[in-house]
Design a protein around this nucleic acid. Sequence first.
DNA 1: TGAATTGGTACTCGAACGGTGCTATATATT
DNA 2: AATATATAGCACCGTTCGAGTACCAATTCA
Lengths: 161, 161
Amino acid sequence: MMTLTRKSDYALLALVHLYREGNRVCSAREIADAYEVPVPILMNILKRLCRAGMVASTRGARGGYRLALEARDITLYMVISAIEGPVGLFQCARRNGQVLASNCGRQPVCPMSSPARRVSERLRALLEEFTLEQMADEVAELRGNDGDEPEPAGVSRVSGS
Amino acid sequence: MMTLTRKSDYALLALVHLYREGNRVCSAREIADAYEVPVPILMNILKRLCRAGMVASTRGARGGYRLALEARDITLYMVISAIEGPVGLFQCARRNGQVLASNCGRQPVCPMSSPARRVSERLRALLEEFTLEQMADEVAELRGNDGDEPEPAGVSRVSGS
DNA sequence: TGAATTGGTACTCGAACGGTGCTATATATT
DNA sequence: AATATATAGCACCGTTCGAGTACCAATTCA
């Protein structure tokens, strides 16, 4: 199954939660409880999101996290990169840290490296299209606007299909 | 690192190889040698591609594989599905076989399931855009342009297609 | 018959994911 | 100042899964 790790799911849940709470500082425990995710795990994830600059932390009693960026500036690409590491579907396309594949040994040029790079770029562009704002609002819409969230103005979402 | 398994790389190399050889039947050994991939591994991969209907096999001495479909009908999506299993970035979006995530416990609606499905659909569409023909030809083109490796003039993958 | 080649499955090894625990640090409350 | 709360960072462990190996059956060519 081609899938991300569960941590990305958790990260997005946390971000959606923070978004809905506006500027309120939410503790890891609170967020974990809301989705029944093990607390220490969500802690780890929030730490990563913090290091990546997407959320800001407040230490000490009554501390916690809040978004450090506008929800419309937090893209799926940022989240996945922060949690899963560099995005690049093919190992052929690996440039950083890893060798450019030991296969293609007898080939003058790796027949996949170029297409692989193109696919990766398209994927990146796709993931950058999705913003936290957009994703969170889409669900709010489905829920029928039971309205405990800030409901930011000017949402005109670009619905693809 | 968000990446596919190496088997997808191998599968694509094999398919590109078969495409370039037109209708010739190529043994797993031959293909494996061309890219210095361990033979038994490529065997496994070709078996899967065969089961998925992308290549046709001929058993016995001088047997091997050839494409079973037109190169323009073999999409990246098909290859990845056959090798990696169902495509779907988020575990939230899992429908088949797996539970729809045990998180979101206290939420009326999983805040990610709907966006997750949308992302998966866009990803699928993206992967379906890329065909074997397109990817293989792109490389052939590059090999001609960057003059690094003088192209053997008639590489234009044998008629057949 | 014998060699070559695919079909299928079962297995081992190592790395990564999922999850836990501990200690240090910072802040609000008392 | 003392205490409770909460993040920061790291080290650790068990299970799963990917990567690769091995084996045997079935099929075809010479």
